[in-house]
Simulated assay, not measured.
Amino acid sequence: MKTLKTRHQFYLPDDLSETLAALAAKPGASKTAILTDALRAWLERKAGHELDERFGPRLDRQQRIAQRSEATLNAMAEMLDLFVAHQLTLVAHQPPFDEETGRLGLQRYRRFMDQVARRLASNRGALRLAGSTAVKEDGA
């Protein structure tokens, strides 16, 4: 009769052999079942380590990208906050705008938005942090 199991013969240290015998003495337990479960768990844990080695660097790189993106977003939020606060305090004491000033402001706003659109389209919209020089376009 053919079995689905292969016989193995190996040696265990005495203390480990005694522990195995004590575990196998419990009802419903056997040395074969205990060693099979232990070997399967050990092999599966090794496979998990292989996955960590395989995908770990990629996940680390993705985490660094996410951290840089978060830092960039935080810097942009701080800059916007500072700019809005500056503008609100700068224009707080000025007289109301007349029609000509409104047209000039709208014209400047449209030029600014066109410049932003061009930079984003040319992939030059990357954030430039402290120490960088601003590039002037259209004489603005």
Rank of each mutant, 00 (worst) to 15 (best):
P13D: 02
S30Y: 03
R124F: 03
D81F: 01
H93G: 14
R61T: 05
A75P: 07
M79L: 11
K31R: 15
E100H: 06
V116E: 10
A41C: 00
V135L: 13
R54P: 00
T72Q: 01
L43A: 15
A77Q: 11
K31A: 14
R118W: 09
G56K: 07
K26A: 15
A38F: 14
E70G: 00
H93I: 04
V116A: 05
D81Q: 10
Q87M: 15
Q107I: 10
A121T: 09
L12T: 05
F112D: 10
L129P: 03
M76D: 10
R119V: 04
F55D: 12
R103I: 08
G105D: 11
F83S: 09
L43P: 00
A134Q: 06
L12I: 03
Q9C: 02
T6K: 13
P95H: 08
R40T: 13
A38M: 12
W42A: 13
T101S: 07
A66C: 08
T36P: 03
I65C: 01
S132Q: 11
L82H: 09
P27A: 14
Q63F: 03
R124V: 06
L106D: 14
M79V: 00
Q94C: 10
V84K: 04
K5M: 12
H86G: 07
V84H: 01
D81K: 10
A140D: 10
T3E: 10
K2V: 09
G28M: 01
T3I: 02
L129G: 01
T32S: 15
D138W: 11
A85Q: 13
K26D: 07
E70Y: 00
T6Q: 12
V84T: 09
L80S: 04
A92L: 09
S17H: 14
N123E: 15
R128H: 12
D15C: 03
Q9N: 13
F10Q: 06
L73H: 06
Q63L: 11
L104G: 08
L35W: 04
A41W: 01
R119W: 06
G28K: 12
F112T: 11
L23M: 13
D138C: 08
S17C: 07
Y11N: 13
V116M: 10
L43G: 00
A25L: 04
A77G: 00
D52W: 06
Y11D: 11
T6L: 06
G48F: 04
M76S: 01
R68Q: 05
G139M: 00
R128K: 15
A25V: 00
I65Q: 05
E50P: 07
A85E: 13
Q67W: 02
D138L: 07
A22L: 14
F97I: 02
Q115G: 04
M113K: 13
L4F: 13
T19F: 08
Y11S: 15
L73N: 05
E50L: 14
G139H: 07
A92E: 00
M113V: 15
L4W: 09
K136L: 13
T72W: 08
H86A: 12
G105C: 13
L23T: 07
H93P: 02
P13A: 10
L80A: 03
Y11G: 05
F112V: 03
A71R: 12
I65H: 00
A85T: 14
A38G: 06
G125D: 14
L88R: 15
A134I: 11
Q62V: 03
Q63I: 03
